[in-house]
Simulated assay, not measured.
Amino acid sequence: MSLNRMGVLGPLLVIAGCFLLFHGESSMGTGTIFASLWPTLFVLPLGVFFHWMYFYILQRRGVGLLVPGGILLTTGMVCQMATWFDSWGTLWPGFLLAVAVGLFELYWFGGRNRWLLIPINILTALSVLFFIVFSIGSLLGMLYSGQPVIAIALLAAGTLLMLKQRRDRHPL
């Protein structure tokens, strides 16, 4: 059976393309590949495996498999983005969201126990709150370090506000 018939070639090409796109170095070795793609190679397949077990092998029995499956899928995506963009300080709230995703899958596919919504909502709210706070902190850090893009955006926004204020006082 060929790689293309098994459906493996497409994802491998996508992974290779993402690696080449996000990895700025020209040298590529086994260590470089593992350092950049460890979440895609090890964490995401486990999350997919748990979902595959629940949906296809156990045929929707054993809903508890979705909790680690959702946690591993979300954690794998967070880790992969943080590795590619070197943004661990901003994306760490995704780990709180991973637990909320796993519990939400248990809620959705399991008996819809409404008490699960309490930790799901708390974890999701904390994740969003921390993500906003640390994103703003990163943006302010970029501003403080003299990032010209943010400086230009602030200048443009201030100029537009002043022109709008002036137009409101003196209509044509």
Rank of each mutant, 00 (worst) to 15 (best):
A82I: 10
L58G: 01
F50E: 12
M1C: 10
G146Y: 06
T40R: 05
M53A: 13
L58H: 13
G29M: 01
M142Q: 14
C18N: 08
G70S: 11
F49Q: 10
P11Y: 10
M6W: 11
T75N: 05
R166E: 12
M162F: 14
Q59E: 14
G64D: 05
F134S: 05
E105Y: 13
F130N: 05
A156P: 00
L12A: 14
G69S: 06
T40H: 08
H23Y: 15
G47S: 07
I122C: 04
D168Y: 08
F42Y: 11
L117D: 07
M1N: 07
W52V: 06
M142N: 10
N113L: 09
M1E: 10
Y107E: 10
L37E: 01
W38M: 06
I118E: 08
S87D: 03
F131T: 14
P119E: 08
A82G: 11
L154M: 15
M53L: 15
V78E: 04
L106A: 07
H23C: 05
G102A: 03
A153G: 08
L44E: 11
Q59Y: 04
T32S: 10
G17M: 02
I71H: 12
L91P: 02
P68C: 06
M6T: 07
N113Q: 14
F22A: 02
L117M: 14
F104K: 05
V101E: 07
H170R: 11
L143R: 15
F85Q: 02
I132Y: 04
M77S: 03
H51D: 10
L140T: 02
G110P: 08
F109I: 00
W88K: 05
T32I: 08
R167H: 13
Y107Q: 06
I57Y: 11
L126H: 00
M162L: 15
F130Q: 09
S87E: 09
I120A: 07
G17P: 01
S2A: 01
P39R: 01
I33H: 03
A98I: 02
E25Q: 15
P45L: 03
A35M: 02
A157W: 12
S87L: 14
A125Y: 03
P93T: 13
R5S: 14
D168C: 09
A16I: 04
F104R: 10
V78L: 00
P171W: 12
L143F: 13
T32N: 02
R166K: 11
I122F: 09
L172F: 05
F34A: 12
L143W: 13
L155D: 15
I136S: 06
F130K: 03
F134H: 09
W52Q: 05
L140V: 10
L161K: 00
R112I: 06
L140N: 03
L3T: 04
L106W: 12
R166D: 07
G17H: 03
